[in-house]
């Protein structure tokens, strides 16, 4: 099908204008992070000279590297934990037939109805009583079990022909080995999707790290940014923006690389 030139022009106009509007806050922040205070005060759009001073300052005054390291540790831990638990559970729901399986699956689905935000009080107390405040395990373990991920992987595992399982049963391969050597490699695309999703959401997590950390030693970047903003609110916008840009770079890169997969994977989990 060919498109008329007029329609093409209209579409490109719409796309460009929308992209400008949508990306403007990010562009402005990006541009400001390279400006001197002078430029910001006078309301410049493009920095008169590119200065890295803001980045220098933000690393100097804040333990930003420490925060980033913490965020990486926590996000990767959550990602791996979710992948392991969700794929194990999904495997049981697809490949092992046992009594009560359907009831358990319903229970898993039902957990999606309970918002984490409604549980923060007892969860905070649990973590506190375990002595996990200011610890990586306290920040990550509560998020390991994940109904959505289990559901997404279950949908995906179901597309693996059951004959593969039967052939390995005849060959004498046990469930654990089949899970490790066949199911996981065959389903790696959706594992990657889920991993990207898990990393993104963990990196961007806000409420729980706010509650579960009191000490800079274990604070994540998001809480670091909160600190930065409340302390520097008055005039050093360049420094704040530099901090914010550093915080979003890892996730933006991940999103740009994995956008296509994420889009297909999430739609699949949502609708099948």
């Amino acid at each position: 099908m060919t498109m008329s030139l007029r329609r093409k022009v209209i579409l490109y106009c719409l796309l460009v204008v929308s992209a400008l509007f949508l990306f403007a806050p990010t562009i402005i922040a990006f541009s400001m992070s390279f400006m001197t205070n002078q430029d910001i005060m006078t309301g410049k759009i493009i920095p008169t000279s590119i200065s890295f001073e803001n980045y220098f300052h933000v690393f100097q005054r804040f333990p930003l590297l420490k925060y980033m390291f913490n965020s990486f540790v926590v996000s990767i831990a959550i990602m791996l934990g979710q992948l392991a638990l969700a794929s194990l559970a999904a495997y049981a729901f697809v490949f092992i037939e046992f009594k009560g399986r359907d009831v358990l699956f319903f229970l898993f689905i039902a957990t999606m109805m309970v918002p984490f935000e409604a549980l923060i009080i007892p969860n905070f107390q649990t973590i506190r009583d375990l002595g996990w405040i200011d610890s990586y395990q306290g920040l990550s373990i509560p998020f390991f079990a994940m109904a959505f991920g289990t559901f997404l992987l279950r949908q995906n595992f179901k597309q693996i022909p059951k004959e593969l399982k039967e052939a390995s049963e005849i060959a004498g391969m046990g469930d654990l080995k089949f899970y490790l050597t066949v199911v996981l490699p065959v389903a790696r695309t959706s594992l990657v999707t889920l991993g990207v999703y898990g990393f993104l959401t963990s990196w961007n997590m806000y409420l729980w790290p706010l509650l579960a950390t009191t000490d800079n030693e274990y604070r994540t970047v998001q809480i670091g940014l909160r600190q930065l903003q409340s302390q520097e609110q008055l005039n050093e916008w360049g420094v704040i923006m530099a901090g914010a840009i550093i915080v979003v770079i890892p996730t933006l890169i991940l999103l740009f690389v994995g956008q296509k997969k994420l889009q297909q994977g999430l739609a699949e989990g949502a609708l099948k």
Partner: peptide, 25 residues
């Protein structure tokens, strides 16, 4: 057993597929 859809492991090559059972045993 030979299945209708062959049940070949998509991530393994021909040799690995053929030897799958022997390795399991």
């Amino acid at each position: 057993m030979v299945f209708q859809n062959y049940a070949l492991y998509p991530h393994l090559n021909v040799e690995q597929n053929i030897l799958f059972g022997l390795r399991a045993k």
